[in-house]
Amino acid sequence: QNEKLANELKSLLDELNVNELATGSLNTYYKRTIKISGQKAMYALKSKDFKKMSEAKYQLQKIYNEIDEA
């Protein structure tokens, strides 16, 4: 289960640069939040902690959705 979550989180991290570029014309909230979420996700992957990875995955998905809707 950890392996599956780690792969999903890696996949979301692969999209980080594209989504970060998409924040160029948006409010600074999005820029700041996506950077923080990305850092948390990288830390969670290194720690291999299921709870941290779950939270990081949720945060990344949430900010990606917010950027898409903005």
Score class of each variant (00 low, 15 high):
residue 41 A to I: 02
residue 47 S to W: 05
residue 69 E to I: 11
residue 16 L to V: 03
residue 24 G to A: 15
residue 42 M to N: 04
residue 37 S to M: 15
residue 20 E to I: 15
residue 36 I to C: 11
residue 37 S to C: 15
residue 32 R to A: 09
residue 2 N to M: 14
residue 3 E to D: 09
residue 24 G to D: 12
residue 48 K to N: 13
residue 9 L to Y: 01
residue 28 T to G: 13
residue 63 I to E: 00
residue 40 K to S: 05
residue 3 E to T: 09
residue 49 D to F: 02
residue 56 A to H: 00
residue 6 A to F: 13
residue 27 N to H: 10
residue 3 E to G: 04
residue 52 K to N: 05
residue 34 I to T: 02
residue 43 Y to M: 13
residue 6 A to N: 02
residue 64 Y to E: 01
residue 16 L to D: 01
residue 25 S to L: 09
residue 54 S to H: 07
residue 23 T to W: 09
residue 60 L to M: 03
residue 5 L to I: 07
residue 57 K to A: 09
residue 22 A to F: 07
residue 36 I to T: 06
residue 69 E to K: 12
residue 42 M to L: 13
residue 39 Q to G: 04
residue 46 K to Y: 07
residue 2 N to H: 14
residue 6 A to E: 11
residue 65 N to D: 10
residue 10 K to A: 08
residue 68 D to R: 15
residue 27 N to E: 08
residue 66 E to T: 04
residue 42 M to W: 11
residue 17 N to K: 14
residue 70 A to K: 08
residue 29 Y to A: 04
residue 35 K to H: 08
residue 5 L to D: 00
residue 36 I to R: 08
residue 52 K to H: 05
residue 32 R to Y: 13
residue 30 Y to H: 03
residue 57 K to P: 00
residue 30 Y to T: 03
residue 31 K to L: 07
residue 53 M to F: 01
residue 31 K to N: 04
residue 69 E to N: 10
residue 38 G to V: 15
residue 49 D to R: 02
residue 16 L to W: 10
residue 37 S to P: 01
residue 46 K to Q: 13
residue 58 Y to L: 11
residue 15 E to Q: 15
residue 8 E to R: 02
residue 47 S to L: 11
residue 27 N to L: 05
residue 68 D to S: 15
residue 61 Q to M: 11
residue 8 E to K: 04
residue 55 E to H: 08
residue 66 E to F: 07
residue 31 K to D: 02
residue 37 S to R: 09
residue 26 L to H: 04
residue 60 L to I: 03
residue 6 A to R: 07
residue 41 A to L: 02
residue 6 A to Y: 15
residue 56 A to S: 04
residue 68 D to C: 15
residue 51 K to Q: 12
residue 65 N to A: 13
residue 25 S to T: 10
residue 61 Q to K: 07
residue 69 E to M: 13
residue 49 D to S: 06
residue 25 S to D: 06
residue 27 N to D: 11
residue 30 Y to R: 03
residue 46 K to H: 08
residue 7 N to D: 10
residue 35 K to M: 09
residue 32 R to D: 11
residue 47 S to N: 05
residue 58 Y to D: 11
residue 67 I to C: 04
residue 62 K to C: 10
residue 66 E to R: 06
residue 11 S to F: 06
residue 34 I to W: 03
residue 70 A to V: 06
residue 35 K to Q: 09
residue 12 L to M: 09
residue 53 M to P: 00
residue 12 L to V: 02
residue 31 K to H: 06
residue 64 Y to K: 09
residue 56 A to W: 03
residue 10 K to G: 03
residue 42 M to Q: 09
residue 8 E to D: 08
residue 27 N to Y: 06
residue 41 A to H: 01
residue 29 Y to V: 03
residue 42 M to A: 08
residue 35 K to E: 09
residue 9 L to P: 01
residue 34 I to S: 00
residue 7 N to W: 10
residue 24 G to N: 13
residue 16 L to I: 08
residue 22 A to E: 05
residue 56 A to V: 02
residue 9 L to C: 03
residue 50 F to W: 09
residue 13 L to T: 01
residue 45 L to N: 00
residue 22 A to G: 04
residue 63 I to Q: 01
residue 34 I to D: 00
residue 55 E to Y: 08
residue 67 I to L: 04
residue 69 E to C: 13
residue 38 G to A: 14
residue 4 K to T: 07
residue 3 E to A: 09
residue 63 I to L: 08
